[in-house]
Every structure is written in C-alpha cells, then in structure tokens.
C-alpha cells in the first residue's frame, strides 16, 4: 500500500444531475482496486482551460488514498472505459497522507501570507506616490 493523490475530472452535466451516483462510481472504482480512501474532496463546477472531450466546464474530485502498486495501472486503464470520467491524474506521494495534508496546508498559508504582504507593499508604494512624483518625495 502506497499513498497517492488523485484528481479526477468528471462530466459536469452528469454530476449536476446526480452527484451522489457519479461520486459513488468513482469511489467504487477506486475501492475495487484495493484503495483505502482517506479524503474525498469536491471542487465546484469550473471552467476548463481548454476543451476536454467536448466539455468546456468540469467538476474536479480530489482524492487522497492508499492503494497497492498493482492497482494503479488497472485503475488508470478502467477510467478510460467509464464515461463520466473525462481525465484522471494519480500521483504517488513521497510522504504519508496526514503529513502531506499538513505540508500542503502550511504551503497555502505561506502563499497567502506572501500575497498579502505583496499587496500591502504595493498599496504602500501607491500612498507614497500620491500627490507628488516619486523624485519629489526623495528630495524632501
């Protein structure tokens, strides 16, 4: 059993029609190949960067699971047969799932902090600039 992070892009039309059924097919498919699901997350219907199998929008399902190595290949193959699944990406994690979730939470905290400090710096610069040109501010 190895830890994996999987993202599955599903058909938004079928998902809005019956979200439970779609999510159940995905979960069942994972469990059929010996997966133990740790976390199951849904990203709301969003615009795709480009068309995938004729769809301009899609619903992403983010799953963290443990699976024996042999299961991954057969899982990938079978996702091609299931119609609701438009695309799939399974990545082997280099740490166990709780550590990974912790690390990614820390990552997003840092990114948010950075964004806020950037915004503050930019706004500060604007205030300095207000009313008089930058060279004048320096001279006084």
């Amino acid at each position: 059993m190895y830890p994996y992070e999987g993202m599955i892009l599903v058909d938004p039309v079928q998902h809005t029609a019956d979200s439970e059924a779609v999510e159940k097919t995905v979960k069942d498919l994972l469990e059929k190949h010996g997966a133990k699901i740790h976390q199951f997350e849904r990203w709301d219907d969003r615009r795709l960067a480009f068309e995938v199998k004729g769809h301009k929008r899609g619903v992403y399902l983010l799953v963290h699971f443990e699976m024996p190595g042999e299961g991954v290949d057969t899982f990938r193959r079978e996702t091609r047969i299931v119609e609701v699944i438009l695309r799939q990406l399974v990545i082997r994690l280099d740490t166990d799932i709780p550590t990974h979730l912790e690390r990614s939470a820390a990552y997003y905290d840092k990114m948010r902090e950075d964004q806020e400090s950037r915004r503050a710096a930019r706004d500060g610069r604007r205030e300095d600039y207000d009313g008089q040109p930058a060279s004048m501010v320096e001279a006084t």
Binding site: L9, L48, A49, G58, Y60, R87
Partner: peptide, 10 residues
Amino acid sequence: RARYMALIPY
C-alpha cells in the same frame, strides 16, 4: 501536471 488537468492552458 496542472496543464494536463486543464487547470491552466497549454
């Protein structure tokens, strides 16, 4: 990876 999942454009 993000490109493959259509999160950002190619």
